[in-house]
């Protein structure tokens, strides 16, 4: 018996670029961040200090990936509300429809696909909430990270002007009291949030694969080609 499939667009090229930029930045930030937290490999003693610059390069890569994250975060935040493709914020409003859909997606996961009573042709409420959690974690990461970063700009000067450290102080000083009152708390919070993001990522990858296998709609292709297939007639 042959099933007919219909192709549906789920991610625009811009969304896919953002996705992979984020993925690469995240891996880079984790690898370099772990080194910054506790340098886990040693450099060759025989080399002169000036030739190595290992920590400095790690920090450089960490900050660059953070800045890329910053920019994509702003873009994503914009798209949440103004995307012409799909406006995710609509799925976040806790109205009856969204709550029901959210529950149904979870039931689908828990019943191991025995029950699937929601429309999988668009981003569902559960998915949107899950991504929103990621973005909130990321925002927290950015604020705590920039707070840690601005410690080194105590003179108030930077290569791009005094507005930058000033802006960083205005936007991130609140992280100190919120995390517990000391710079060490900010650091610990930044570190723990990294682990939360790693856990988030592991489930994300699993869930995408699981959906691909069980829903049989080719979900894994979305992030590459931008589209998936649903059975015709749905």
């Amino acid at each position: 018996m042959k099933t007919d499939y219909k192709k549906i667009e789920r991610m625009t090229p811009a969304m896919r670029i953002i996705h992979w930029a984020n993925a690469i930045c995240m891996i880079a930030a984790i690898i370099t961040g772990l080194y910054i937290a506790h340098p886990y490999y040693q450099s060759f003693i025989a080399d002169g200090a000036v030739d190595k610059y290992v920590m400095a390069w790690n920090r450089w890569a960490h900050f660059i990936s953070a800045i890329i994250f910053d920019v994509t975060s702003i873009v994503v935040a914009y798209l949440y509300f103004f995307s012409r493709f799909e406006k995710p914020y609509k799925k976040l409003i806790p109205n009856a429809k969204n709550v029901k859909e959210f529950g149904e997606v979870i039931l689908n996961l828990l019943t191991l696909n025995r029950r699937k009573r929601f429309d999988s042709t668009h981003s569902d409420s559960f998915n949107t909430v899950y991504f929103t959690i990621f973005h909130l974690l990321l925002f927290f990461m950015l604020f705590t990270g920039l707070q840690l970063y601005v410690h080194g700009l105590e003179s108030g000067e930077s290569s791009i002007g005094t507005w930058w450290p000033a802006l960083l102080h205005i936007s991130t000083d609140w992280t100190i009291p919120v995390t517990g009152g000391t710079l060490m708390d900010v650091r610990i919070a930044h570190h723990i949030t990294m682990w939360l993001i790693v856990v988030w990522m592991v489930f994300h990858i699993y869930y995408q694969i699981w959906r691909t296998i069980f829903w049989e709609e080719g979900d894994i292709a979305i992030v590459i080609g931008g589209s998936k297939f649903v059975k015709d007639g749905k």
Partner: peptide, 14 residues
């Protein structure tokens, strides 16, 4: 301390 949350002058050395 909450009032101070958004106090930007805290750390800058002018």
């Amino acid at each position: 301390s909450i009032k101070k949350l958004f106090d930007a002058k805290s750390a800058k050395v002018d």
